[in-house]
Computed example of a mutant assay.
Amino acid sequence: MQITDIRIYKTTLRNKYKQMRRDMPPSVKVQHDDSIRRRVQSLYQYKNAKTLLTFVSTDIEVDTRILIADALKNGKRVAVPRCIDGTREMEFYLIKSLDDLAPRTFGVLEPDPERSELLTDFSDSICIVPGLAFDFAGYRLGYGKGYYDRFLSRYPQTKVGIVYSSCMTQRLQHGRYDVAVDLLVTERYLRKVNSPSRFSQRR
């Protein structure tokens, strides 16, 4: 299919995948979220990481709040993003609990810099990446603001996209500055990007 206007193409896809997520029965979402979380926690990259970088999920996203709570309980450092005012950049701050968060940019929970520590050393970390959809090459359909692509272009460690299998697609149109993740995790499988075959831990 020839794309004449990438903006219309992406807006149409965003509306499609947002609606698919809204239509997911709550009980199914809970099951899928739990499967995805367990698969993330089974990754050796996750087990070996001392610091977890992750977004704080909204209602239509794969839940990350239990993942955050589990990581903190098990002694990992957890850092979540905060958008920098007047830019399309974001920084990650270390938190001690979900109580360190408050609604801010686009209504998303973000850390309070007065209660949190700015993370500057990304060694021994892993980053959980959100997306409305992903393709099999690891490229994502985000919300269109570019915050994550800017950050990921400088992030040297493992990038893990988490997404429902119904929001996976064969190929997404992407630009030269879009950044692919290294691993994809759905409720059905784990996929190493650029690998000809899937490796899975089905349960």
Rank of each mutant, 00 (worst) to 15 (best):
G142H: 12
A137I: 02
A137K: 15
K145N: 14
E117W: 07
D124V: 02
V129F: 00
C127D: 03
G144Y: 09
L118W: 00
C127A: 14
Y143K: 08
K145P: 10
Y139K: 15
L132T: 08
F136L: 13
K145V: 06
G138Y: 08
A137M: 12
G144W: 11
G131C: 12
D135M: 06
V129R: 00
A133L: 04
F122D: 12
G146T: 05
Y139P: 15
G146P: 09
S123E: 10
R150I: 01
D124H: 15
I126G: 11
E117N: 04
R150T: 01
V129N: 00
Y148I: 05
L132P: 05
E117Q: 14
T120P: 02
D149L: 03
Y139V: 13
C127V: 13
F136P: 00
L141V: 10
S125M: 05
S123C: 01
L118K: 07
L132I: 03
S123K: 07
Y147D: 00
F136I: 09
D149K: 05
L132R: 04
Y147G: 00
A133Y: 08
A133C: 07
T120Q: 14
F134E: 13
Y139L: 14
L132D: 07
Y148F: 15
V129H: 00
D124I: 02
Y147I: 01
L118E: 03
E117C: 10
D135L: 06
R140W: 03
E117I: 13
A133E: 06
E117G: 02
Y143N: 11
Y147L: 02
T120K: 13
G138K: 10
T120M: 11
L141D: 15
L118Y: 01
F122Y: 15
S125V: 01
G144I: 08
Y143F: 14
A137G: 10
D124M: 09
T120C: 10
D124T: 02
D121M: 03
G138A: 04
E117K: 13
F136C: 04
K145S: 13
V129L: 02
V129D: 00
R140D: 09
S123Q: 06
A133S: 13
D121A: 05
I126C: 14
S123N: 05
L118A: 03
F134S: 13
Y148L: 09
G138E: 11
R150M: 03
I128W: 04
Y147S: 00
G142W: 06
G131A: 11
E117T: 15
C127P: 01
S125L: 03
D124E: 15
K145I: 07
G131L: 11
G146A: 09
S123W: 00
